[in-house]
Write a protein that binds this DNA or RNA. Sequence first.
DNA 1: CGTATTACTACGTTAAACGGAGTATACCCA
DNA 2: TGGGTATACTCCGTTTAACGTAGTAATACG
Lengths: 107, 107
Amino acid sequence: METFNLGRFSDPSILILASLAGSSKHGYAIMEDVESFAGVHLGPGTLYGAIARLESQGFIEPLPVEERRRPYRLTASGIAFLHEQLSGLESFASMGLQRLRLAGPGL
Amino acid sequence: METFNLGRFSDPSILILASLAGSSKHGYAIMEDVESFAGVHLGPGTLYGAIARLESQGFIEPLPVEERRRPYRLTASGIAFLHEQLSGLESFASMGLQRLRLAGPGL
DNA sequence: CGTATTACTACGTTAAACGGAGTATACCCA
DNA sequence: TGGGTATACTCCGTTTAACGTAGTAATACG
């Protein structure tokens, strides 16, 4: 299955936040979820590095460890931040596509 | 005017390509355009570094220099690439927002 | 005629993306 | 029962590119 490709415009942080918006989950599950919904594979360095940063920024918080899994959930500020980012992204994408539609034939 | 904020999820490359989708323009004009439509300020290092990379990737090409300005335009492959990226971005953003809507109240 | 704006170049620093390697536990199945 | 696979990470090194500062030079303006 070919999912849409976000290329280098795929800040792992947002992918992780979007994954946690679906439901709270631990690192490995985030990795699989991101891979399946965005077609982006995050290696361990990228994934856990980004998770640590998101936690220190207060956008996600750890839940009790269960069976060597450390699940995380979005905080209120993580939800707000994600919403803001996604809204901006959606506006930007639709504006860009509009530009392509208008100018595309005439380039 | 408060524009939407793309934060760190704002690969300068895509912003530049989207700017050129509006019309061909030179570096400084791209900088101003990106600032006005995306609210993102690109410093010279970021801007011209990204432009050089986009050119070497064949996504943009230089037009004849006029009055110490070096304008660029999208190539066909740049248009295709931008379209693909923006479509993916739009899907991703709307999927993420949907997840927030569904799970948001229940987190 | 000097100050601001335009349009860059050049360079250095830093953050973080990325991947390889390794560890350890649990699960399956022959 | 023990060997392979999946899970769930940690650790660490390399590379990339984002970002800013400084500087240059030309044109505009007032």
